[in-house]
Design a protein around this nucleic acid. Structure first.
Length: 276
DNA sequence: GTGGCCCTGTGA
DNA sequence: TCACAGGGCCAC
């Protein structure tokens, strides 16, 4: 599912419901989703601790605990984090349950089982994940300026821009949906080598990143198939998608049909007329 | 860079 | 039945 806007939507949902609560226990029927620890050790490490804050770094969710540890969760393609009453019926594909004192659960559902939770020391990764290795800048941070973007692009002159936009070490949080949407906004073909981009195109890419991610957060994310927020509600951005998964449909600018090609093993959707 | 892989489900 | 799916890692 989830790219930055979807993960941010989940973060906000968690922040409003579980911040300040204490973890009672952790249970799983799929131990591989508790990365790096056996289930009993995982539960022992976090039980009794309070959730001090809920943060996000790229597509990762961070639950900062009162004992100096942070639970890091990644939803990958089909993960969901639902906040429920403890007694609510357990939905299929629920694989990890974090039971909170006071009668609520955080439930991790994941059809494809790619998602995971793991435990890190907060001082190692930073409370907001600022020291997590291998991640590029947060695109909505104040510090991510057009100058920073231009400088980072210049260091990767041979890359195709689509591959770069979804590279988490280049910018954290953009995935396949929003990369395609940003490229359409900027009028740039996904296969373009970054060295060929004009100043104006680079600026349009930068503006598109900020504008589209913000707009998608405003709509609580995009639900193509399985994405839901912590209450199980779907996101509202899908009707605003211009090209993603619209192969064969008319480009919203009226140019002609949207085309699909494969770059880096992933689908790219674009308009051959208005994206150059 | 590309392809395979981790999984299950959906739609043509 | 087969291609494809919001991600990311690994081997070639």
């Amino acid at each position: 599912m989830p790219e930055l806007p979807e993960v941010e939507t989940v973060r906000r949902g968690l922040d409003g419901t579980v911040t300040g609560r204490t973890i009672a226990s952790v249970n799983t029927d799929l131990p591989k989703m508790l990365r790096g620890e056996k289930p009993r050790a995982f539960a022992k490490a976090v039980a009794g601790s309070k959730i001090n804050s809920v943060n996000r770094r790229g597509k990762m969710l961070l639950l900062n605990l009162s004992n100096g540890l942070t639970i890091v969760a990644h939803l990958k393609m089909t993960g969901q984090l639902l906040v429920t009453k403890h007694g609510d019926p357990v939905e299929p594909w629920t694989h990890v349950t974090i039971e909170l004192k006071g009668g609520r659960d955080i439930r991790f559902r994941d059809i494809r089982q790619f998602g995971y939770v793991e435990i890190k020391r907060t001082e190692d990764i930073g409370g907001s994940g600022e020291n997590m290795p291998g991640l590029g800048p947060e695109p909505l941070d104040r510090s991510f300026t057009s100058g920073v973007f231009a400088w980072r692009i210049k260091k990767r002159p041979k890359s195709r821009i689509k591959a770069l936009l979804i590279d988490q070490s280049f910018i954290a949080g953009i995935g396949n949906i929003y990369a395609d949407e940003v490229l359409h906004y900027a009028g740039v073909k996904p296969g373009r080598r970054t060295a060929t981009l004009s100043l104006r195109e680079r600026e349009q890419l930068y503006n598109g990143i900020r504008k589209i991610l913000r707009a998608a957060i405003e709509k609580r994310g995009t639900s193509v198939s399985t994405f839901v927020d912590t209450k199980g509600q779907r996101g509202g951005y899908r009707p605003h998608l211009k090209v993603y998964k619209r192969t064969g449909e008319m480009c919203p600018k009226g140019c002609g049909p949207v085309k699909r090609i494969v770059i880096g093993g992933r689908s790219s959707h674009y308009c051959p007329k208005c994206q150059r």
